[in-house]
Nucleic acid binder design. Structure first.
Lengths: 236, 236
DNA sequence: ATGTGATTTGTACTATCGTACAAAAGATCA
DNA sequence: TGATCTTTTGTACGATAGTACAAATCACAT
């Protein structure tokens, strides 16, 4: 007997479940978690409010499923690109490749959906700003490994920089990345229309260029070696 | 007759209005606007919910008043520091001074309250992530002038870098600044306790050091002059 | 065609939201 | 003290939140 795959296995037909996930992702990423109601999501997906409860049980469950959908593919993509970057011989080139391996998936991929990476990354940015508990948990247990791998890779390219400084700078990188996705219009506004903040390619190149230079900055201890010391010293 | 100043003029006694403002600022900055109810704020301030309505009319009005309280002093402080930074002769030193003039007030001042600057900056970060309308308006009309002034000052120190690149990099700076205030614990975690993400002095020094280097990076057009071109080209 | 399990709909329940408003309490000065 | 203005309290109202659940509908193997 040739058993046709059930709808649960295929998702070949236009699926309500998928529509709800997509709508929720879009709305959460733009307005935050608390500002969006289950009814808003259902309406945007052309579904019934009760349908959300059926598929995801709770609103938190819906958010959790969005994360589950993206985290795997995105980290996979990053691992591949990172592995390739590690094989670059020249240390300078390798640093740029590593940074690019971190940045590119955040903007361009992360799931099967085309261009859904930016949306999901923006979602993560907004959730982290809201201090969302569900997001905090899943982020810490999913992304920290990846982050450590990148920090190690960067440290390999810059052995003379203390790991602490690398952590700070990679934190800045993530912040810059997030903010570029959250308010791209600000770039357009401040450049008086000369730059397009929502152009992913520009954002990537600018971010990679700036970040590589930031990583290459002298370590804090040996900073300003024959210049005036900073007004507020950290710990000397 | 020696007219005693009325309470409206002095605010000398422990003021309920101030307590509500402080509580709201703290709660909004940590949990976002929508996640915090008027009743939460009242309880944290030891006040009655109706008292919030009396002093600020609406929840939006409360947020607006928080912004009004901080924007003036913070921009004033920044203008002073920027003016002083502009007088630095050496271009390299001037760049660092300008960046510092931008960063320091965000962490340390911004109002009469001691150390309230970081809280307000974090609030702005969270509001921008949530796409809050009240915040968006007041930010655009209050901070864009300051941002332009800083961009101009940085451009003066780096005349060979296109203004577009400077805008992008200053945008990254703000993103990094915001993110450092939103999730300082991540720095502590990723550095395995070696760095304290919530130490303002460290954050400032690390941010200034990294950002100055980022600004000094070669312009995008002339980037990678005799190296391989980036995989994803922006517009060439 | 029909029965069966998966899905969608419609609706209802309780909790909490922002806000309004009258009454109580406190402060100020003739 | 008593009159007047400011502030605080207590409570209530309508709207909307998340979720539950029974009925209706759909997909599909037999």
């Amino acid at each position: 007997m040739v058993r046709k795959p059930t709808s649960k296995e295929t998702a070949r037909k236009p699926n309500m479940r998928e529509a709800i996930l997509a709508a929720a992702e879009e709305l959460f990423a733009t307005n935050g978690f608390n500002a969006v109601s289950v009814r808003d999501i259902a309406q945007a997906a052309g579904a019934n409010p009760g349908s959300v409860t059926y598929h995801f049980k709770t609103k938190d469950g819906l958010l959790l499923e969005i994360y589950r959908r993206h985290c795997g593919p995105m980290n996979l993509r990053r691992s591949e690109l990172l592995a390739a970057a590690r094989r670059v011989r020249d240390l300078q080139d390798r640093l740029e490749a590593v940074v690019r391996a971190y940045v590119v998936p955040a903007f361009t991929s992360g799931s099967d959906l085309a261009g859904g990476g930016a949306r999901f990354t923006r979602l993560r940015a907004v959730m982290s700003a809201e201090g969302n508990e569900v997001a905090r948990k899943i982020i810490a247990q999913t992304f920290d490994d990846t982050s450590h791998a990148f920090i190690d890779a960067i440290h390999e390219s810059l052995p003379h920089i203390p790991r602490t400084d690398i952590v700070w700078r990679s934190h800045f990188l993530l912040g810059a990345l997030y903010y570029s996705l959250v308010t791209p219009d600000r770039v357009s506004r401040l450049s008086r229309g000369e730059a397009d903040g929502s152009d992913a390619a520009s954002a990537i190149e600018q971010l990679v260029q700036a970040t590589v230079a930031a990583f290459q900055a002298p370590a804090l201890d040996q900073a300003a070696p024959m210049r005036r010391r900073p007004v507020v010293s950290s710990k000397t």
